Simulated assay, not measured.
Amino acid sequence: MALLCFTLPARAGLFDDDLARQRIEQLRSDVNALTQRIETVNSNQLDFANQLESIRADLAKLRGQQEVMFHDLDALQKRQKDFYIDLDNRLRKLEPAANEAGTPTPPAKVDSAKETRDYETALNLLKASKFKEAGASFLSFIETWPNSTMQDSATYWGAYAHAQAKDHKQGAALFEKFAATWPQDERAPDALEGEAESLKALKDFKAAHAVLQKLSDKYPMSDAGKRAKRELKLTHIKKK
């Protein structure tokens, strides 16, 4: 009995040590597992932050490209306007020489000088980017001088002026009239493109698509026709 009394506390102490070691090992394992989870979370957060930064960089790049495209488009439209205005002026300067060479002259007008002044007034307003006033002036010219040899230019620039003034309904109507009345004019493809843009601004996308299709089919080699073809192809891909 005496021997038993001495051995039992020793064995109890041994069991306590083993249990303590097991608990310590379990605690150490739990700590390691938690540490691994924290490291995994931190790693995921770092990856997410890197991905977010990459997305932001791509977005900034795309915005920059968009701004460049808008700037190029504005510059292109300005060059196109200046080109046609210059061409219009050159052609009208050639008309007197052509008449002197024996080309049949148009029917006499009540006041050809006033006709010219009215057209110049509208054109000068357009050059000054006073689009609303220019549009109204061109419309007045079209109604006042229905037999004028400048009806084509007045119609085209009237359409352009109205579109720039955000009067897209009138702009679309005049662009359509120009393309239908003077289909052989070099500005006809641009007129159809302008009509499509005005229709899109009016959210009449079905009609705009039809005009782009007409432009692509009728003037496939023109710059406007090529742009229409690309847009139609892109629209077709999006629908798929």
Score class of each variant (00 low, 15 high):
residue 109 K to H: 08
residue 97 A to F: 13
residue 54 S to E: 15
residue 103 T to P: 02
residue 99 N to G: 11
residue 46 L to V: 10
residue 63 R to W: 03
residue 65 Q to Y: 04
residue 124 N to C: 06
residue 117 R to T: 14
residue 119 Y to P: 00
residue 113 A to W: 02
residue 60 A to F: 02
residue 66 Q to N: 14
residue 90 R to K: 07
residue 103 T to G: 06
residue 52 L to S: 10
residue 88 D to W: 00
residue 68 V to F: 02
residue 67 E to Q: 12
residue 94 L to E: 11
residue 103 T to S: 09
residue 65 Q to D: 14
residue 108 A to H: 03
residue 110 V to W: 03
residue 73 L to T: 04
residue 62 L to D: 04
residue 71 H to F: 04
residue 55 I to A: 12
residue 48 F to C: 05
residue 63 R to T: 15
residue 122 A to I: 02
residue 64 G to C: 04
residue 90 R to A: 13
residue 106 P to C: 04
residue 110 V to T: 14
residue 100 E to N: 07
residue 118 D to V: 00
residue 48 F to W: 09
residue 120 E to S: 02
residue 54 S to D: 14
residue 106 P to V: 10
residue 115 E to R: 00
residue 110 V to F: 07
residue 58 D to Y: 05
residue 80 Q to P: 01
residue 54 S to V: 05
residue 49 A to R: 09
residue 71 H to E: 13
residue 47 D to G: 02
residue 123 L to R: 01
residue 95 E to R: 09
residue 108 A to I: 13
residue 88 D to K: 00
residue 105 T to C: 07
residue 49 A to N: 11
residue 92 R to D: 12
residue 97 A to S: 15
residue 117 R to V: 08
residue 77 Q to A: 04
residue 60 A to P: 01
residue 93 K to S: 12
residue 98 A to H: 09
residue 115 E to Y: 00
residue 81 K to Y: 01
residue 74 D to E: 11
residue 102 G to E: 08
residue 55 I to N: 11
residue 119 Y to C: 01
residue 52 L to G: 10
residue 51 Q to G: 08
residue 85 I to D: 03
residue 114 K to Y: 04
residue 68 V to T: 08
residue 101 A to H: 03
residue 54 S to P: 01
residue 81 K to S: 05
